[in-house]
Design a protein around this nucleic acid. Structure first.
Lengths: 109, 109
DNA sequence: ATATTATGCAACTAATTGGTTGCATGTCAA
DNA sequence: TTGACATGCAACCAATTAGTTGCATAATAT
């Protein structure tokens, strides 16, 4: 799960996922065309995405095809995001209560 | 949005969110007790979380209270995660098709 | 008043990250 | 068989990050 969050933290890697979303199964060379960096840099980004299982790779001859795998993203939602959403109402009402309480006293920074 | 992904990329920061989920409105000092690092380090993590609007801060006298704000997390889901989920079935079937294709002889023309 | 508590700010270090260049390997096409 | 291509691997560099220490400031308690 840590690998997934780390992988999603970089804008270039999110852009790669976006590219695969637009056109799935692209080769390394094709993916490179959309990013302003060397092929080797893109390779490293793709390696991180693969480690996080956000993409799957299939070799076809000398070509490396990349496929989007949204499963880990779904997991983020299931195991982590929904957890916080459930607290949303409670959190906000508590915040509101505390804000009103704070307004009775002098402000700080 | 980039700030949110960056903020979520670190396990210590996710742990801080977890702590606030368990007990909302904790002070800096309280949050420090759960992490094995200096107060100043925790302060920096909390600053990043605040920048990403994942937490809200309320001053009460000399105490700094921290409140969870799950709104950006909900945004991730709405604007980004659901986008990939929609493709999940297509992506997997495409992958399967390509895998089967790979097991044959490559084309020669 | 004074000490204690709760926090902020800044400089510094070490580790990690994002990128580069150079060279090597395997596949396809002529 | 040769040359071009698609990619891999490794060393290196610069920027960012995660953490530290030291000192400063503001609020509270005695």
């Amino acid at each position: 799960m840590d690998a997934v969050f780390k992988a999603l933290a970089d804008p270039s890697r999110r852009k790669l996922l976006d590219q695969l979303y637009i056109h799935n199964g692209q080769t390394l060379g094709e993916l490179c065309e959309h990013l302003d960096m060397t092929r080797q840099a893109v390779t490293k980004h793709l390696a991180l995405l693969e480690t996080a299982h956000l993409i799957a790779i299939i070799w076809q001859g000398r070509e490396k095809l990349h496929y989007l795998n949204p499963a880990p993203i779904q997991e983020i939602y299931d195991r982590w995001l929904s957890k916080y959403e459930r607290h949303q109402l409670d959190a906000l009402s508590e915040l509101k209560r505390k804000l009103e309480e704070t307004n009775k006293e002098p402000e700080h920074g």
